[in-house]
């Protein structure tokens, strides 16, 4: 029963090999969806290309449905994974910082790795920026961030339990919202692009 590695059911070298193979699938998905094209990524904020929203929600909900189905039938125990701890204050502040970073830099760390290694020069600069940012954070951690990072501590919180409904019902609701948003963003995208103001639209593969 999963997760296998934390319970010592597979060896560490095998775990790292699996990590590499999983990474290949992740990389193919990101590149093939167009996530190395910074204009496609930014499109989600301006309404001309919603590929980010479609890929992102499909991936998250596929995984959530799959994992909780496996949990229900005893194939995995989600509570044994490295379940994220919630510190809502630093996460909310950092999220806004990253949102701003997304609009200025045009990538997030995962997509920038794909883009930089497939020849996108702007992504290489972005990667340099991420390293600068982490160095800055690391060397100013004690005076600036250490206290803030520990605020808003709530433990390992499951959002469905927190609201007071079952995991299955919560995932069902989010899936319905996601599917509704897929239909709506297609309409928005058509409307925005029919105004015909997007330059070099063929580059976006729309």
């Amino acid at each position: 029963m999963g997760p296998l590695f934390p319970q010592g059911l597979i060896s560490e070298p095998l775990n790292l090999l699996i990590a590499f193979i999983i990474g290949i699938g992740f990389g193919i998905g990101l590149e093939a969806a167009g996530f190395t094209n910074t204009r496609k990524l930014a499109g989600v904020f301006y309404g001309y290309d919603f590929v980010v929203l479609k890929v992102f929600f499909t991936a998250a909900m596929t995984a959530a449905i799959g994992l909780f189905l496996m949990d229900a039938y005893g194939l995995i125990d989600i509570k044994l994974t490295f379940y994220p701890h919630t510190y809502w204050i630093p996460t909310a502040i950092a999220g806004v910082i990253m949102g701003l970073g997304f609009l200025i830099g045009g990538f997030c760390p995962g997509t920038s790795v794909c883009a930089a290694t497939t020849g996108k020069i702007d992504a290489m600069m972005f990667v340099v920026g991420v390293f600068i940012g982490i160095f800055f954070y690391a060397f100013t951690y004690e005076p600036l961030f250490e206290t803030l990072r520990g605020t808003g501590k709530m433990g390992q919180v499951d959002i469905a339990e927190w609201i007071g409904i079952s995991d299955g019902l919560f995932i069902f609701i989010v899936t319905v919202i996601a599917v509704a948003s897929f239909v709506i963003v297609d309409k928005i995208q058509k409307k925005v692009n029919s105004k015909g103001k997007i330059k070099d639209i063929e580059e976006l593969g729309l």
Binding site: M61, T62, I65, G66, L69, G168, F172, T175, V179
Partner: peptide, 13 residues
């Protein structure tokens, strides 16, 4: 996706 979500909703606790 919708099929999976419904299945999960009906899955045994």
């Amino acid at each position: 996706l919708l099929f999976g979500a419904v299945w999960l909703l009906l899955a045994p606790s």
